[in-house]
Write a protein that binds this DNA or RNA. Structure first.
Length: 287
DNA sequence: CCCACGACCTGTGGGC
DNA sequence: TGCCCACAGGTCGTGG
């Protein structure tokens, strides 16, 4: 479920292997993911050294010493697996089974240190591109992006300005990456539930107090998810090297028909469809 | 300009 | 057991 917390968790899992690493071999096992891989993808990466892995919204960024930035988006089903050379030396502790999903292993990066990073993506909604560093900010994928929800530019004043006069539902508005960058279907549902705001409300109808609560709640929900991802990341790393998915107990998402977990609420979670996507909420405590 | 909706692609799980 | 449909974390383009 690659929303911001998952992408951040993936970044943290890849950083120890890719930060400062030189790529000695790159395999593009098919010419395209969601979009065609850029011209010379393999050649432009082979021999390049990666700087420090970073993240913007749901994009992973690997800056190269040649001036390009390798930009990666996980789409719906993208994930990485790391096969560590060191890990292979301790077969009792680590076990990597590269053939489990060979069919969807679309891109493979080999580092000078003997590490292998494999990108899997069954649905192929993910994508990669090489973009000159100086052109990143003006690139269509990044130009209109809203602030990072965990940064200081995301605050009540920002949300007030973005929500002002909007008739669109607050659910759909929060999914808009131009309003705030990195939220997805799950964490919007979770943040609205925790804030006590009904998803069908027009964004422009939220009161200042509700906006303030929403800002703080979004931060909390994402920060907690990153924390969970961090601890799960250690488990995964110890188990099989897979990155990108982890367990999380959600309060509303996927809980249709189950009792609301807000203390004293007593409501039942319902599922509706907004913009073709499922929204889960409690009609009792979300108003 | 704003918004709803279908498309993209494949896998999985539930119901019959 | 097998088949068919609904649905799945995200964007992007089209059309009203």
């Amino acid at each position: 479920m690659p929303e911001l917390p998952e992408v951040e968790t993936v970044r943290r899992g890849l950083a120890p292997v890719l930060d400062g690493a030189r790529l000695v071999r790159v395999e593009a096992r098919r010419p395209d993911l969601r979009f065609a891989l850029p011209d010379g993808f393999v050649q432009r990466l082979t021999g390049a050294r990666i700087g420090t892995m970073s993240r913007r919204a749901k994009y992973l960024l690997a800056p190269l010493d040649r001036g390009d930035v390798l930009v990666m988006h996980l789409g719906m089903s993208g994930r990485f697996e790391v096969a560590s050379a060191k890990a292979k030396q301790k077969p009792g502790e680590f076990h990597y089974a590269p053939s489990v999903d060979e069919k969807h292993a679309h891109v493979v990066f080999h580092t000078e240190d003997g590490e292998t990073v494999t990108y899997f993506d069954p649905r192929r909604f993910g994508y990669m591109d090489l973009i000159p560093a100086e052109a990143l900010a003006d690139h269509p994928w990044f130009k209109g992006l809203g602030p990072e929800p965990l940064g200081e530019d995301f605050n009540t004043a920002h949300l007030k300005a973005e929500f002002a006069g909007r008739k669109q539902s607050v659910k759909a508005t929060l999914l808009d990456q131009c309003v705030v960058a990195g939220l997805g279907n799950i964490y919007v549902c979770e943040a609205l539930h925790r804030s006590g705001v009904a998803p069908e409300r027009a964004a422009g109808s939220l009161k200042p107090k509700e906006l303030a609560v929403l800002v703080e709640t979004i931060r909390l929900v994402l920060a907690e998810a990153i924390e969970v991802g961090g601890s799960t990341l250690r488990d995964y790393a110890a188990a099989d090297g897979a990155l990108g998915y982890f367990q999380h107990r959600f309060k509303v998402y996927g809980r249709e028909g189950e009792p609301c977990l807000k203390p004293g609420c007593g409501g039942t979670i319902v599922r509706i469809v907004q913009g073709g996507r499922s929204t889960f909420f409690c009609p009792v405590c979300q108003r």
